[in-house]
């Protein structure tokens, strides 16, 4: 069971202007990503949308496999900027790791 948390996204707001809210979960980014298979990067965007902070932390290492090639952002049908979300999560995860 995954709990949803609408408050979580507010913690990310100071870190970024774009939190992928435009994403409608079509999966283009996950299929176009040349480096990581499975559901990345949509997985991260989805966890931001529902506020599943734990899931993000559990999978945080995936974030650093992203080389920011920009293909996901370029092909996103909704202009949701997945690359920017990954960058934001890197900042967030780093800040959490620093605190702990």
């Amino acid at each position: 069971m995954t709990g949803v948390n609408p408050e979580f996204v507010k913690r990310l707001e100071p870190l970024s202007a774009d939190l992928g809210s435009a994403c409608f979960n079509c999966g283009t980014c996950a299929a176009i990503c040349p480096l990581i298979s499975e559901h990345f990067p949509r997985k991260m965007i989805r966890y931001v949308q529902i506020g599943a902070q734990d899931r993000i932390m559990e999978n945080a290492r995936e974030l650093w496999r992203c080389l920011h090639c920009g293909l996901c952002t370029q092909t996103c049908p909704r202009g949701a900027n997945p690359g920017e979300v990954i960058l934001t999560l890197k900042r967030y995860v780093t800040s959490v790791w620093r605190k702990s």
């Binding site: 995954t2 949803v4 997985k43 989805r46 529902i50």
Partner: peptide, 16 residues
């Protein structure tokens, strides 16, 4: 509300 969410990889979500 609990829902098996296809957008979240089929995970079961609980929404208060």
């Amino acid at each position: 509300v609990t829902v098996t969410d296809q957008l979240t990889f089929g995970e079961e979500l609980e929404v208060p």
